[in-house]
Amino acid sequence: MTNSSNPPVAVVTGAARGIGLATTQLLLEDGWHVAMIDRDEPELMKVSNGLTGARPFVCDVSVPEDVDQMARQVLAWSGRIDALVNNAGVADFGPMADTDFKRWRTVMETNLDGVFLCSQALIPALKQTHGAIVNIASISGLRASTLRVAYGTSKAAVIHLTKQQAAELGEHNVRVNCVAPGPVRTKLAIAVHSPEIIAAYHDAIPLNRYGAEHEIAQAIVFLASPKASYITGQVLAADGGFESTGVGLPALRTKLDK
């Protein structure tokens, strides 16, 4: 797919763990070079060590000055940017009554402002390469749920921001798409989800299981690649069918006894 003498370059935010790290690893396997972006410097340095073709850059995507500096540093290293994966995000779940403005802003600063800032900083470079942006939202941005007033709203905003970006950048041959993961088997999810929660998710998902980080990464890398050259402004729910079934009761999806 790639020319080893002039490999494409991707910028992946939130690359120190989870979906961001899985995406980085898959891009490297496909011959890309990857700028790994994260604000957790110790973890970023640890996981990037030994990854040929990857370079870590410490950056808080919610801070405009950090993002501008990151953009300059990445371009000085790579000379080009072919894809931006806006994956960095924070999760904060709790009742609406307990979500004060500080908690609201903490979620919005990373989940929404970070996508906006990184995109704005790297759009000039992406125009030069006719590149792609892949924003990472969530199934919580497509369907409402309890305890997610800030998180779900931030991800719904990312979905609409994706469409705004696609509408404006299409004439520059820059594609913008969004992946909305459903429940994913991350270390954090397994640590905080009780057996009852896990069983309930399994019952509600047609594929009857959590997704894996590498499965979400496959969708991201596809949309970032030339294989998706005529796809823009789309939202791909990588969720095992969770969104498609709405609020239907699992018991009613089985054959009823006559």
Rank of each mutant, 00 (worst) to 15 (best):
L122G: 00
I136G: 03
R105D: 15
S145V: 00
A137P: 01
G131V: 09
A121T: 05
G182A: 06
E168F: 08
I123W: 00
K155L: 03
A199F: 04
G170V: 10
G182I: 03
H214W: 07
H172Q: 13
A189T: 11
R185Q: 14
T129N: 08
E196P: 10
I205H: 01
V179K: 02
A137D: 02
D113N: 15
S194L: 09
V149H: 10
A121E: 02
V134F: 07
E171R: 15
H172V: 00
I123T: 12
H172G: 00
I216D: 01
F101L: 13
E168L: 13
S194E: 12
E196A: 15
E196F: 11
V176F: 09
H202L: 02
N111D: 14
A97L: 13
K102W: 06
E215S: 04
L142V: 01
Q164P: 02
G182F: 03
S145C: 04
D203C: 07
A199S: 13
Y201W: 13
V107M: 08
L207E: 08
L147H: 14
N208L: 06
A156K: 06
A150F: 02
V174Q: 00
H214T: 10
A166H: 09
A137E: 00
D203R: 14
E109V: 05
A157S: 15
Q128K: 14
E171F: 06
G141E: 01
H130M: 08
V149E: 12
R185H: 11
H193S: 14
A137S: 15
G211D: 00
A212S: 11
G152F: 03
A121D: 02
V192A: 04
A137L: 03
V176K: 07
A200T: 12
Q165D: 11
A167F: 09
Y210F: 15
A156H: 05
T186R: 02
A167E: 07
A191W: 04
E168D: 13
I205P: 01
R143V: 15
L122Y: 00
T162F: 08
Q165G: 13
A150E: 02
T146G: 11
I159C: 11
C118V: 07
S138H: 04
A191H: 11
N208F: 08
P195I: 06
R175T: 12
K102P: 03
G211A: 10
L207S: 06
Y151Q: 02
L142K: 04
L117C: 09
I133V: 15
G182Q: 04
